[in-house]
Simulated scan of single mutants.
Amino acid sequence: MTKLTFAAHPFLLGFDQLERLVERTAKTGNDGYPPFNIEQSAENGFRITLAVAGFREDDISITVEERQLVIRGRQAEEAEDARVFLHRGIGARAFQRSFVLAEGVEVAGARMENGLLHIDLVRAVPEKVVQTIRITRG
């Protein structure tokens, strides 16, 4: 039995790349760590906020790979005898969070504040283009 996809519809010509982005997004691990918010900060601006308590700026890397924003975090190893935990409730495991960026969305900047990592995104407004196609005879 063949798998039918939305890009196979005859009215959706050339949307195979969009289908690949949807599949890639569905495959990304979604274990809920670290928790995050996405908010609209302006008409064409967005902000992703991740709760990264215990991580320093040097422990986190932010990259854009093929229109996919990837945030990775790994805390530096500490000496085994430096601290003795009676209870450890603050997450210290490594993480990777991915977000697929739409065409024209770029990362404007990132900053850490009170255990929160803020990543600002800006969407460029595309110019409206009207193209007239001339019909030729036979």
Rank of each mutant, 00 (worst) to 15 (best):
Q40D: 03
I71D: 07
Q68A: 14
L121F: 06
D59L: 12
S98F: 00
E106A: 10
A94L: 01
N114T: 06
R123H: 07
R97F: 06
G45N: 03
E39Y: 01
Q40C: 02
D120R: 03
F99Q: 03
E127I: 03
A82G: 00
A51K: 10
Q75M: 15
D120W: 00
E66W: 00
L86S: 06
R56L: 11
G73M: 07
Q40N: 08
A110L: 01
G89W: 07
F46Y: 14
Q96K: 15
N44G: 05
S61Q: 14
V125G: 04
F46A: 11
A102Y: 01
G109L: 06
V70S: 08
R123T: 08
E127M: 07
L50M: 11
H118V: 00
V105T: 06
H118P: 00
Y33R: 10
G29Q: 14
R97A: 10
R97D: 04
E106I: 08
I62Q: 10
A53D: 15
R47T: 14
G73H: 10
R111W: 11
H87Q: 03
K27M: 05
R72T: 13
R56W: 04
A79T: 02
N30K: 12
L50F: 14
P126L: 13
E78Y: 00
E57R: 12
A53G: 10
E57Y: 02
H118D: 02
V64F: 01
G32T: 09
I119N: 05
R74D: 09
E78H: 01
S61I: 02
D31R: 13
D58Q: 10
A82C: 00
A26S: 10
Q68D: 07
A76H: 02
N114R: 14
E80L: 04
E80W: 01
V107P: 02
E77K: 09
A94D: 11
A92S: 12
P126F: 11
L117A: 05
F95W: 15
L117E: 02
G115C: 06
Q40V: 09
Q68T: 15
V107S: 03
G91Y: 02
V107E: 10
G54C: 05
R83P: 00
K27H: 03
L121W: 03
V70A: 08
E78K: 05
E113M: 06
E77Q: 11
H87N: 10
F36L: 13
A53H: 13
R56Y: 04
T63K: 12
I90R: 12
F99N: 05
Y33N: 06
R72E: 12
R47S: 12
A102E: 15
E106N: 05
S41L: 14
K128R: 15
I71E: 08
A108H: 07
E103G: 07
A108G: 10
E106W: 00
I90G: 06
N44D: 14
G45P: 08
I90H: 03
V84Y: 03
M112W: 05
V52Q: 08
R83L: 09
Q40T: 09
E43C: 01
F99Y: 14
D31E: 11
A42C: 00
V125A: 15
E65N: 08
D31C: 04
Q40E: 12
Q68G: 04
A110G: 02
E80M: 01
A26Y: 04
I119K: 03
G115L: 07
G73I: 05
E66I: 06
E78I: 04
V105F: 04
R97G: 03
K27S: 11
A94E: 15
R88I: 00
F55D: 05
A82W: 09
